[in-house]
Nucleic acid binder design. Structure first.
Length: 590
RNA sequence: CGGGGCGUGGCUCAGCCCGGCUAGAGCACACGGUUCGGGACCGUGAGGUCGGCGGUUCAAAUCCGCCCGCCCCGACCA
């Protein structure tokens, strides 16, 4: 492609709204343009990279037996009602009515469509196992799109669905994806870790998220460098050390003015935070014979710990969980800042499992300005539920080996779920097994957002000057920059001939044939980030040569014209080898 | 949904507080000329309902109200 013909404009300055590097550079280099919040177009360069990413996904999916298909973006709401997700999912779902006033849904994911096809077409164990996938648009009306392509509302996802006759089959396909996903990310040039995760709206039995570690990430991960345990903080387990046992002391009311926070309370009483109990008020939307009902939740964790809302929501099986408002708190009879589990009625009390083992805590007295000392679980109050509802923090002990845990930020670039029979049951996907018994099909679902992946690659591979694409996903393999081609016929001829030779020999080449100054061309080349750059100028043609430079290295060297093709071919292969060396087997962490 | 910020040619921004000239600059764009190995220079030119609506005023980019959009933090989220 000649740059003079390319549909592309590079920007000297990044738009003011772009903050993270990948966003700024992808916009400046002309890979993407924003249409609205979380809605982007991919221009030709961006499209080429996306296509390469998608082809890598295709190859890896096909390698584990995947079969590509395409499912619709617009669905009748009926199938989403069958699985209840029409009711369970809130504003994130795109809904509209067609001309016949029929409820319609914009695809957020495709379990329902898969299940609908499967229940009609799969009859026998002989048709299992299967693995199907497609690369298709999703719409999720995220309340807060951010960071360019990192979090958007409309995006393209490679999603695959495994169909099995039994759980062993699911496990096998799950593990196949586990490795295939590592292969995809490694081939795209980004390091990732797989962490155990919450199953979220997908439901199901087991899930892993693939995390690209970066400070701009929005998920917090908990990692054990000693034994390799890693999990999303939303569900991370950790070892809680109970305090030394103490004889329960008689409860005692103490005056604690202006001590409305744990911090202030601990300071005022000169006690460590772990000797206090923290009350957190939430409102959960819980299933209630067929419908849903808002229930006030009084959650108690030790003062030195934080409530983990995901854990709490999962334990309660809550559809939604939010912080209670001040009015709601007062309505239950609790006094904000001095709330106490002692003597409360008509609320659901959930207590962290460490509280039981922590004697003589300071808790609120439900009276402005007073706390109770020596509050003991069991004696002074009890809970409806005792469970692990606290969040792991930096330095907490690893659940497996006891070593201190570390937290890190990451972007979720992919996920895999063992769905089990959640969708099969809801939509009646059954097959007749060998033994003549009708059984539900066991499903798994697996997704990678291709645009987000592209942004992560850009995040990982760039410098001050611009993007530095790994050879596997670069829009072009080589860029020819001609300097003074409009003045020197010799330069023009050599550059044109080189371009044509590469085209003929199947090398993907971008040719900057514009009548621009050298500075502009070099700047644009660096911005766009094609892995190999060849410069043709008066200076080089005099020596029958071109200048060779890799985007990821600063050295330049002259290559004789007669050897250019062989050199480029060789260097492309070297670049591929570098990537290939990173594609490794990763032990399954179940 | 809560908190904060921003909306002025394609991009980056000035002007707004303290209302008043034809609304500016740099980059980008078009034409002419000079340049030509790291975002060159000179000249000429095109391009803006100052996010929208309403209000105050003799007069609004500027003051007031409502709305919309975009970004950031939080809540939420595959």
């Amino acid at each position: 492609m000649r740059v003079s013909q390319l549909f592309n404009v590079t920007l000297r300055e990044a738009p003011a709204e772009a903050e993270v590097a990948s966003h700024q550079l992808l916009v400046r280099a002309g890979f993407i343009r924003q249409l609205a919040a979380g809605i982007f177009s991919y221009l030709p360069l961006g499209r080429r990279t996306l296509t390469k990413i998608e082809n890598i996904m295709r190859e890896e999916m096909n390698a584990i037996g995947g079969q590509e298909m395409t499912m619709p973006v617009v669905h009748p709401a009926d199938i989403w009602k069958e699985t209840q997700r029409w009711y369970q999912i809130g504003t994130e779902m795109g809904r509209f009515k067609d001309k016949n006033n029929r409820d319609m849904v914009l695809a957020m994911t495709h379990e329902e469509v898969v299940a609908d096809i499967v229940r009609k077409d799969i009859r026998s164990y002989r048709q299992l196992p299967r693995l199907i996938y497609h690369i298709q648009t999703k719409w999720r009306d995220d309340p807060r799109p951010r960071a360019g392509l990192i979090r958007v509302r409309e995006f393209t996802m490679k999603d695959s669905y495994s169909l099995d006759a039994d759980w062993e089959g699911l496990d096998k396909q799950y593990r196949a994806h586990y490795q295939a996903y590592f292969n995809i990310f490694h081939r795209c040039g980004i390091p990732v870790i797989a962490v155990k995760s919450d199953v979220g709206m997908m439901g199901g039995k087991m899930a892993h998220e693939y995390m690209y570690l970066t400070p701009i990430g929005e998920d917090t991960l908990v990692i054990c460098d000693n034994c390799g345990y890693s999990a999303n903080r939303q569900i991370a387990f950790f070892k809680k050390t109970p305090p030394p046992p103490e004889e329960p002391l008689p409860a005692e009311k103490v005056y604690t003015p202006e001590a409305k926070t744990i911090e202030a309370l601990a300071n005022y009483l000169q006690i460590p935070k772990q000797k206090t109990a923290k009350a957190v008020f939430m409102v959960a939307t819980l299933p209630d014979d067929g419908g849903y009902k808002d229930t006030f939740i009084f959650a108690i964790v030790r003062g030195d710990m934080e409530l983990n809302e995901t854990k709490l929501a999962n334990i309660l099986k809550a559809k939604e969980l939010r912080s209670a408002t001040e009015e709601e708190i007062i309505a239950t009879g609790a006094v904000p800042g001095y709330a106490s589990p002692v003597g409360l009625k008509d609320v659901l009390v959930v207590v962290d499992d460490l509280i039981q083992q922590s004697p003589n805590l300071v808790a609120g007295a439900n009276e402005e300005g007073y706390h109770l000392k020596n509050v003991n679980y069991g004696r002074d109050y009890s809970a409806n539920i005792v469970a692990d509802i606290t969040a792991a923090q930096d330095g907490d002990a690893c659940i497996r080996c006891g070593a201190p845990l570390r937290t890190a930020r990451g972007v979720e670039v992919g996920n895999i779920f063992k769905l089990g029979t959640r969708y099969s049951d809801a939509m009646g996907c059954t097959f007749l097994d060998k033994d003549g018994v009708e059984k539900p099909i066991i499903m798994g679902s697996y997704g990678i957002g291709s645009g987000r992946l592209m942004a992560c690659i850009a995040e990982e591979h760039h410098d001050d000057q611009g993007l530095i694409w790994p050879i596997t996903v670069a829009p072009y393999e080589v860029e020819i920059v001609s300097l003074g081609g409009h003045q020197s016929e010799k330069v023009q001829t050599v550059a044109d001939r080189l371009y044509q030779e590469f085209l003929d020999r199947g090398i993907e080449v971008l040719y900057d044939d514009r009548d621009e100054s050298p500075g502009v061309k070099f700047m644009d080349a660096d911005l766009i980030g094609i892995p190999i750059r060849l410069t043709v100028s008066e200076r080089t043609v005099q020596q029958d040569a071109v200048e060779f430079k890799r985007r990821d290295q600063s050295e330049k060297r002259l290559v004789q014209l007669s050897e250019v093709y062989a050199t480029v071919k060789h260097e492309i292969e070297l670049l591929h080898q570098e990537i290939r060396s990173k594609v490794i087997e990763v032990p399954f962490e179940g």
